[in-house]
Design a protein around this nucleic acid. Structure first.
Lengths: 202, 202
DNA sequence: CACGGTATTTGCACCGGGTGCATTTTCACA
DNA sequence: TGTGAAAATGCACCCGGTGCAAATACCGTG
């Protein structure tokens, strides 16, 4: 039998990694809490983590990427979520459903999630950077919408639906950050329904 | 009678400005065409314009702001556009109408507009930066939606409508850039209608 | 015409993010 | 005890952006 290659990357020799992205993220978040994002330099983070500044960039492509965790791996989850949906569920209901499910977090991780999102959506530099990260998220939605509509995902309607879905998510998130007593899932669901309602109302 | 203070700022003495933002923009755009946005440095632009690098930053807060022209002044135009609409025009019809009108450009300015938008929506750094510039645009829409709904513009629904409207605009623009033969106005109108249709379809 | 006030330009030193490259360190395994 | 591979590191840069002080050009006035 071949050696187990699942989980961590196999290591056929070579120096051990001295830390992890998750660990660096933790160190960085603490500094961000203390002194804010912009006032924290990469040098600060590296020093606090006990690594060289240069090494930091082996773990994160940029300072702006620190708060994103394994966002990309979540995309595959969402794709699966879309696939699992019954074919006869109306398109926008399906989108709403996945919006809610994709953003469901276990209760105990809520404070952590809130902190992360407050950074991403609150700090201008990160807000700007988020556009780039959200592109692949939109693409997942567009693919699904295109599939349902029998159009390429690059067509106008799928792209529009994807953009709108992202907009809904962002406004729900912003509201959630401003109103800690409200549940994110409810806000996402409501926002999506209210948009449909606005479109329907004459 | 007081001297005319309309138009250009009055100059009660002091050194003359040596150039204008518009002129710098022109110089910069030429360089962008030649060598691309990222490969063009601020130093390049300043040199080509015959000013000091430091002076450039008296005309633009950042390199990323070059392609934006007088975008902010356009916002007031859009606000007026919203105000001029009949009160009984359904909310989303009003939004669609303003979306189309705000983005209407005289035929002769179309190539210029396309070049500008191809930069803004095509170069990652500018794409990211655009998020920050679009915030005030969204706010205009949210204010109108809030007004119509009898809610503060910060409420969930107005914000969602604003985010969605921006999404629609972005997807229409992207499509326009990819398909030069199509008219921007039509794409904006269609995108908005298709989103409504998607929401309505069961 | 010289002068004084004013706004703009400029130079300079500096900071922070990010990269390319060569070198050193640490590890597994033979 | 090597030997090869991966990771960490150091260093020299580049670029965008800022704070500050000095130089420069313009205006109106005496």
């Amino acid at each position: 039998m071949r050696p187990d290659t699942s989980g961590a990357v196999q290591r056929p020799g070579g120096r051990r990694k001295v830390t992890t992205a998750a660990e660096l993220e933790k160190v960085a978040f603490d500094l961000f809490d203390e002194q804010g994002f912009e006032r924290t330099t990469v040098t600060d983070i590296a020093a606090a983590a006990g690594i060289a500044r240069r090494t930091f960039f082996h773990y994160f492509p940029s300072k702006n990427d620190i708060p994103w965790g394994d966002f990309d791996s979540g995309l595959e989850r969402m794709r699966a979520e879309f696939r699992a949906l019954p074919e006869d569920l109306p398109l926008m209901d399906a989108v709403r459903h996945c919006l809610v499910e994709f953003n469901r977090v276990p209760e105990e991780q809520v404070p952590e999630h809130r902190r992360r999102m407050r950074l991403i959506l609150g700090v201008p530099a990160l807000q700007a950077h988020s556009t780039l990260r959200f592109e692949s998220w939109r693409e997942v939605v567009a693919e699904f919408a295109g599939h349902r509509l029998g159009e390429p995902s690059t067509a106008l309607t799928p792209q529009t639906i994807a953009h709108a879905a992202l907009g809904v998510a962002l406004s729900a998130y912003q509201h959630w950050l401003d109103h800690p007593e409200l549940a994110l899932s409810d806000l996402l669901d409501t926002a999506m329904r209210e948009l449909a309602r606005a479109h329907a109302d004459q």
